[in-house]
Design a binder for these strands. Structure first.
Lengths: 101, 101
DNA sequence: ACCCTTGTTCGACAACTGTCGAACAAGCTC
DNA sequence: GAGCTTGTTCGACAGTTGTCGAACAAGGGT
């Protein structure tokens, strides 16, 4: 079964925002933004692997990430360019570590 | 009782995103972005006034809007400048009617 | 003073969401 | 093939959220 990665333009804006509106998922996105491509297992944010898998699914189905199999692992990467094209500024705004006052 | 309008910088990013991740609220924000200041009652998106009041509260407590009393009405406006300063690009990205491919 | 208009607040209820452990699937290595 | 590693899927459960009608509060107008 292929991992259902929709066209970003086909995903409602609210779904994209909802996907980003969670602490764990935001940490994943931030890690991906810096790290490039990473295996699912390299994320450890204090949740079970079931939960982690769930969050990665939400991100994938919101059109934010792409996943490809590599052995027993799955490599995840951020759809950086598409995101910036369709929602310019969104990623930067969200990724900002904490804008100094 | 004053309507509890937090410092935008004190609101977690996820809360800001969550506030925007709803269709009704997004419509409200879009209307505010164009219309400037509007009374609560001038929004009609097919929800009861209880629900509308709820959504306006969520937006207010996420630091996205300001509200001031004016007679029996309450005027709501978007905190446009603060938003753009703290999350540059966010509003534009979200407000875009539908970015042409 | 009375009433109408405008909003908010209060349950209540259904739907969704985040979380987990356990079971399952698929691939590698020995 | 046996066993290990890596992920996904399946209930289940608690907490949150969107929705409503009804009750309440505060102003304004007559």
């Amino acid at each position: 079964m292929e991992p259902h990665e929709p066209d970003l333009s086909a995903v409602p804006v609210t779904a994209v925002l909802a996907a980003l509106a969670d602490d764990v998922r935001l940490q994943i996105v931030r890690a991906l933004a810096e790290g490039g491509e990473r295996a699912c297992g390299t994320f450890d944010f204090g949740v079970s692997k079931a939960t982690r898998s769930h969050h990665l699914k939400v991100l994938r189905e919101a059109g934010l990430t792409r996943t490809r199999a590599a052995g027993t692992s799955r490599l995840v990467r951020l759809r950086h360019d598409e995101l910036n094209k369709l929602y310019p500024g969104l990623l930067d705004a969200v990724l900002a570590p904490r804008p100094p006052a």
